[in-house]
Design a protein around this nucleic acid. Structure first.
Lengths: 110, 110
DNA sequence: GTTTAATATATAAGAATCCTATATGTAAGG
DNA sequence: CCTTACATATAGGATTCTTATATATTAAAC
């Protein structure tokens, strides 16, 4: 059965997927999600930051303070091994949800 | 852009889809959703009834009290024309979300 | 005949997630 | 100097789903 958390967990999957490409800070993360989905998926930073804290507490990502060339202070997040392990079953859960909804709408048209 | 409501709106799509097949009462609706998705998608009745009220207020469904052959009193819901009109764009929105998430995870693997 | 399971609806209390609004501060461009 | 882009942070609120509980009828099991 599909876990209860996944239905509203799009953000979690998005963050883990993007960070799988390489470390990033929050602001850029939000931009990547929006760009890579052609604007279809978008998260405000106010939604993103608390989520990054939660994911850091769960040890899926790890944040380190860094200073960019500009001298700007920013927090760089990278995927932990635990985070990588989390990504695969999460994708599978989403695929299951998609198939479930497709079955519902297709049966409904029959 | 995908609306903010749809990410957690699986239940809405499920109810509209199943009712598209024909009128049903709440208890049976929950069973159909579970059966047609092979148990992948499941809603408790406590989640379903308040949602049916909301959807009735929005005129997407209409409920009438009926008495079954057993003599049991139950509320039968059927899709309104407005509900049918709502179903198509909802399905499109979901399809968009699926594609967006697929793009994210695929780019991430590249 | 009494208990149990299945049918059927309803509400309350709570958790989780996301959004809007707001605050703070730096750097670059005009 | 003023605006735009960069960058993080918190408070308050809305929505949705879950768990727990209450009620009542019917059919089957024992």
């Amino acid at each position: 059965m599909i876990g209860s958390g996944i239905k509203r967990g799009t953000a979690e999957l998005a963050v883990l997927s993007v960070l799988h490409d390489g470390p990033l800070h929050g602001y850029e993360l939000a931009r990547r999600i929006e760009q890579q989905t052609n604007g279809a998926l978008r998260f405000t930073l106010a939604a993103l930051y608390p989520m990054l804290y939660r994911m850091e507490q769960q040890r899926w990502i790890r944040g380190t303070w860094e200073t960019s060339a500009n001298g700007r202070r920013r927090r760089c997040y990278r995927l932990t091994p635990a985070g990588k392990k989390k990504l695969t079953p999460l994708q599978r859960e989403w695929a299951e949800l998609f198939h479930a909804l497709q079955r519902l709408t297709k049966v409904s048209h029959a």
